Simulated scan of single mutants.
Amino acid sequence: MKKFKEIEYWDLTENPKDDIYKRLIKVLCNNSDKFYFIMRKELKYNQEILAQFEPYTLETYKTKKWAGTETKGPAATVFVMESNEETYKLLVKYANSLYDWVAPKLPEDLTFIKNNFIWFSCTTHEEFAGFSIRSDYYKNLIFGIQGLKLEPLE
């Protein structure tokens, strides 16, 4: 596996929907140790959906800063989850696109991590998402997702 000297950044130019969304989430879940989403105190979320993620919760904590976001308001709660086949099924059961992950139904800002490196992050309400790639292996993974629209970030 060839490593890059620098990290390459690739932004999504279109909201992945339906089958493209499912393929994206499959690649992310299969190649990440964990992922997280956030919930803001001032927003409401579907508690029945959140309860289904509870068995896979590794940790929760409050912060004002997470991948791609820094808030001046109240701290958000980060829910760190196992990345596995069961959480993949939940991620595609309750959303048909990446930007469906927004209040009031779902938590926000899906972020995927491998070896403590954030390689995919999303700021849902801004409809911004992208990859941080540091090897050919991961670059080949994302370019193997048929229909995913990407552009390099300069």
Rank of each mutant, 00 (worst) to 15 (best):
Q146E: 15
I38L: 07
R23A: 08
P107C: 12
A129N: 06
C122S: 09
K2V: 05
K93A: 14
F128H: 06
Y138E: 02
Q52F: 06
I7K: 11
E8G: 01
P152H: 07
S121C: 11
D136E: 15
D19S: 14
R40L: 12
D19F: 08
N115T: 03
S97R: 00
I7C: 10
L43E: 12
V92C: 08
P74F: 10
L110G: 06
T87S: 09
P152W: 06
P74K: 12
N30G: 13
R23L: 05
Q47L: 14
Y56T: 09
K64I: 01
N15E: 09
G73T: 09
N116K: 15
Y94R: 05
K34R: 14
E8D: 09
K34L: 09
L153M: 14
E70H: 15
L91K: 04
G147T: 07
K2N: 08
Y21N: 02
L91Q: 09
A75Y: 09
P152N: 09
Y56D: 05
F53P: 00
L91A: 07
I145T: 07
E59A: 15
K22F: 03
N30K: 11
E85K: 12
E59Y: 02
A67K: 08
L90H: 03
E154Y: 12
E126C: 06
I133A: 05
F131P: 00
R40E: 13
K64L: 00
E48W: 05
S132N: 10
Y88Q: 01
L150P: 04
I133K: 00
E108Q: 13
T111D: 06
T63W: 10
S135F: 01
G130V: 05
L50G: 14
K105G: 08
R40Y: 11
D136C: 02
E54H: 14
E82W: 01
K2P: 00
S97L: 00
D109M: 08
T69Q: 14
L110Q: 05
T123Q: 13
I7H: 07
L106Y: 07
F131V: 03
Y21G: 01
A95D: 03
F79N: 02
L98Q: 04
T123K: 10
A51Y: 14
E70K: 15
T13Q: 09
L28V: 02
L12M: 05
Y137T: 12
S32A: 15
L98Y: 03
F53L: 12
E108P: 03
F53K: 06
K65C: 08
L28Q: 02
P107D: 00
E82A: 08
L91D: 02
F79E: 04
N140K: 15
T77D: 03
